[in-house]
Amino acid sequence: MPENELPNTHTVGERLRSRRRVLRKTLASVSTEANISESFLSQLERDRASASIATLQRICAALEMPVGDLFNERRQLSVHRHASANFNPYGIGARKVRITPTTNTQLESFIGEFDAHGTTGDELYAHGDSEETLLVVSGRLEVTIGTETHVLGPLDSISYASSTPHRAREADGGRAVAVWLMSPPSY
């Protein structure tokens, strides 16, 4: 086995259940979206039944995942190389890059870079219902969570529910770098 791969022993049923739970969907809601019975979905998740590809496609559509993810026997070890990262602009004067694979089901993380007075946006935003931590790596950020605002310096962090409206902005007219960690993924 190549050194950059790890064995993945999860069954199709375990992968379906894990994804459903990450999305915080019920058996009933997924079965309705996929046009199958709740008991059949439960049996699939417990590996007591199998389904056609067409049925798996409907279930995966409801779970917002590619069908191929059910059959991958190996998971790539993810190495993030900052020097070659493809940062995406967002907000005003800010860039963000995901540093965990999109296939992660328990943790999602990003690095954000802020130019002078850069911000995630003028408006507060919220997403999902995850536990989220923002860690300032360098510079200083003014972080607003709900109605509270805090100024954080290097290695300061703040934790909050991602469902609470929030915003970050560079505080001193310099540059800042931060890391966001969310569990489960919700962005």
Rank of each mutant, 00 (worst) to 15 (best):
H127A: 10
E123P: 00
S52A: 13
S138Q: 11
V97Q: 12
S18I: 01
P89I: 05
L70E: 06
R24A: 15
S84F: 10
D156H: 08
R169P: 04
E108R: 02
A49R: 09
A171K: 01
H166A: 05
S39T: 14
E64I: 00
R140D: 04
I99W: 04
H80P: 03
I92G: 12
V177F: 05
E113I: 08
E123D: 12
V79F: 09
I59T: 03
A171M: 02
E5T: 12
I111L: 13
G174N: 03
N88V: 07
D122G: 14
E14N: 05
I36K: 02
S29N: 04
L124W: 02
H166L: 09
L134T: 09
T55G: 01
F71Q: 04
T100I: 03
L27M: 13
D156F: 01
R98I: 02
P165T: 08
S18M: 02
I158M: 01
L27E: 07
F87A: 10
I111V: 15
G173R: 10
V30T: 08
S163E: 06
T55S: 07
A54E: 14
L135E: 02
T9E: 12
T9C: 09
A116E: 09
T55Q: 05
Q57F: 01
D69A: 09
E170G: 03
A85G: 11
H117N: 15
L23P: 06
G128A: 08
Y125S: 14
S42A: 12
N8S: 14
S138M: 08
S18A: 10
D129Y: 07
T120E: 13
N104L: 03
Q76V: 08
N86G: 12
N72D: 11
R175S: 11
A126T: 10
R19L: 06
A161H: 10
